[in-house]
Design a protein around this nucleic acid. Structure first.
Lengths: 246, 246
DNA sequence: CGTACGTTTGACTCTGTTCAATTGCCGTGG
DNA sequence: CCACGGCAATTGAACAGAGTCAAACGTACG
């Protein structure tokens, strides 16, 4: 499980000046609501674009916090280690999303972040972001909204973990992924999972066997089609009905 | 359950100018790390101190977001309503803690906040806080840390909900309360719960009966003493051992 | 081509839920 | 002051859902 590349941090192989104003992610990422000039300034701040290969880590628990990372391409998971060594996945992160918000509080990372496929991130030095947001109110405002959205998202997960049954949890998870793919211009009904059943289970508070059974059940009912990590949603309405109608 | 005072918002009965520099909560609340002059300015911002009686609401889901609230005295719970009407408690909030961070993202409150005992809060107009934090970097920094801490806290709850057994959850909950009381100068081993078994259960992802049984079990083992809402922790080490050693 | 890992499926166990009855606590009103 | 009613909490018994253990299968990668 923890086999691939334990402590690398040599992920500056390919660095290039990034360019927020030309980036297709503008509407998803940090520059939301900024004018051209402001985006230009932000582009100077976000001075590194780096490639992260599958299995490489963005940061480890306890490592020093310097920067946030915006996912430019690819897929990440973040997780915390429990005292007994098992990992609890705290989130999956895709294009346009920010990683590292948890580390601001203590200036140390509180989780590990690892790439589940070959990826690319923009490194955003946090001190500079704070400084810049003093002069650009809309940037500050948007950053606050991003942090707040993270809190709201976590409350949603708490609700899921606190009161849903296995099938409801999986349905919620699939609908969430579907929606996020859709917003990024991909198919909302046909996608490849980047994570294993065990990782899904960890995120949803279930064992991998239970996740597998829930997949099989949804497939039997012809709501989805599962071919390993390839998922097709055949009947999104019935999938939605799974939630709160178990 | 939803009986007492449904839509009040008349909680400005007693308003008084607050005074951050004289407040005993300075080290817990927003002014952490500010100098005297900065605290003075902040005091002008936090222009209302208001009393909230037990059962009154600070805000409802969907209501317009204007201000954060710092608990000055008392005890609150926040919860979201699920489609079937049940409530999922997302947090308990005591002296020095900030309520409303979730609402920044959409400028609408995403949960209900209700007082579990007679309380007092400072209202902090968010727009003014943002404006002020532009001029006081340490204030901005501290505010970001508070938001980040909230995210970290939620990850802890996710871990609890995702992988702990009933007894471990309750032990974790009691230790957390104990620690928070201690930091506020109260006894860490002898306190009154402000919430019902059902509310604890909702927060911990358990049914009220299970919570009750877990209390009884801990009492049988003489780790704690329970008299209704009065809790005494007799052996905090064994309580700690309950976590991760089930 | 063979091995290793991820996945599926089955049988059994166990934890927590559900339903129901009982007790205890506290405020109200006689 | 005590009796009553209502709500919270406790406890028991039966049940259900998810976990555990184990075996077999498929796919991916060296």
């Amino acid at each position: 499980m923890l086999s691939d590349t334990p402590i690398p941090n040599n992920h500056d192989i390919t660095r290039a000046k990034s360019n927020c104003s030309a980036c297709s992610l503008r509407e998803l990422c940090l520059p939301v609501g900024l004018n051209e000039q402001e985006v230009e300034i932000l582009g100077d701040l976000v001075n590194h674009k780096c490639r992260i290969q599958r299995g490489e880590y963005l940061h480890h628990t306890g490592s020093n916090f310097q920067s946030l990372y915006a996912v430019r391409r690819g897929f990440f998971k973040t997780y915390v280690l429990e005292q007994d060594g098992r990992q609890q996945v705290t989130g999956f992160h895709m294009t346009g999303e920010l990683i590292g918000l948890d580390a601001i509080s203590t200036e140390m990372h509180t989780c590990d972040a690892v790439a589940l496929e070959d990826s690319e991130v923009c490194e955003i030095p946090f001190a500079k972001l704070e400084e810049m947001s003093r002069n650009i109110p809309s940037l500050m405002r948007h950053f606050h909204k991003i942090m707040s959205r993270e809190i709201v998202k976590d409350h949603g997960v708490m609700m899921l973990l606190g009161s849903m049954k296995a099938e409801e949890r999986l349905a919620t998870f699939l609908l969430n992924l579907s929606h996020r793919f859709f917003k990024r211009g991909y198919s909302s009904s046909d996608f490849i999972l980047r994570m294993t059943r065990e990782e899904i289970g960890s995120y949803l508070g279930l064992k991998l066997e239970t996740v597998s059974r829930a997949f099989s059940k949804l497939q039997e009912e012809e709501i989805i089609a599962v071919h390993n990590k390839h998922i097709q949603i055949n009947d999104i309405d019935r999938l939605r009905n799974k939630i709160g109608t178990a």
